[in-house]
């Protein structure tokens, strides 16, 4: 069993490394302690800057302060540092109302940037068995599992960070996937209707037509006949990029 004073000493040093507030530490050379804070904090800041280069440009005032608040008050959970930056998203959503008011696209931008990091790095997922022919409206389909959808309030996926401050809220969707050949992450701006269609078809065993109808009904597009021919175009486009396949 560790003695209380041992635990307290360990906690005091780690707390100091997290918040940088000078502290009494039994038997320590006080002039050496700032090196620990510097070394620890550099590692964290580098990881956050690497994961969020665009956010760093968007939050022109307060990015450094945000990093400091995050690391001092948040308890980083992931043992792998490359996964740690994801924790910033929930932290900001729960604790940073003032910053979000100033930078309304902040959460969307963090999610968008993290998605790219994660898709690039994530474990390989096997492509399910599928048929060879291009899917038609009446077919059931399987989707590329190394693909993710992001529903956004701000068009962070198609706006330069310097213009983002003027962006208007709305409903946007971005589709991202990791190319099997190159390992590169690619993006496609898609409509909310297509996003909804993808959500439906990945969660229910429906044909393209049935999933499209469900998405159209949800969005109040049922009377508009054009959605089904548009949907066939969209499916063709996904099929060309090898993101959707006819079921076996």
């Amino acid at each position: 069993m560790l003695r209380k004073s041992t635990i307290e000493a360990q906690s005091a040093l780690s707390t100091y490394c997290r918040n940088g507030i000078e502290t009494e530490l039994e038997g320590a050379k006080l002039d050496r302690l700032p090196h620990y804070r510097r070394l620890v904090y550099n590692v964290v800041v580098n990881a956050l800057n690497t994961a969020y280069p665009i956010t760093q440009k968007y939050v022109t005032e307060g990015w450094e302060d945000l990093q400091h608040r995050f690391f001092s008050s948040h308890y980083c959970q992931h043992p792998q540092i490359w996964r740690m930056p994801e924790e910033l998203i929930a932290y900001v959503a729960e604790n940073e109302a003032e910053l979000i008011a100033k930078y309304p696209a902040l959460i969307d931008l963090l999610r968008f940037e993290w998605q790219e990091v994660f898709l690039f790095m994530m474990p390989d997922l096997e492509l399910p068995k599928h048929g060879d022919a291009a899917p038609n409206l009446g077919d059931k389909v399987v989707l590329e599992p190394e693909m993710q959808l992001l529903i956004l309030t701000y068009p962070v996926h198609k706006t330069h960070p310097s213009k983002l401050i003027d962006a208007q809220p709305g409903q946007y969707a971005s589709l991202a996937w990791r190319e099997r050949e190159t390992g590169k992450v690619q993006f496609m701006d898609i409509s909310i209707f297509y996003a909804l269609f993808l959500e439906v078809i990945s969660s229910e065993e429906l044909s393209v037509q049935q999933a499209g109808a469900k998405a159209a009904l949800h969005l109040g597009l049922s009377n508009d006949e054009s959605w089904s021919s548009n949907l066939q175009h969209f499916v063709n486009k996904l099929q060309e990029k090898r993101l959707i396949f006819k079921s076996e």
């Binding site: 003695r3 308890y75 980083c76």
Partner: peptide, 17 residues
């Protein structure tokens, strides 16, 4: 420590416990 990763190496108190 305190349920937070620091991603760097801190010195342990050199003690028997």
């Amino acid at each position: 420590c305190d349920n937070a990763h620091l991603y760097d190496l801190l010195p342990i108190p050199f003690r028997q416990d």
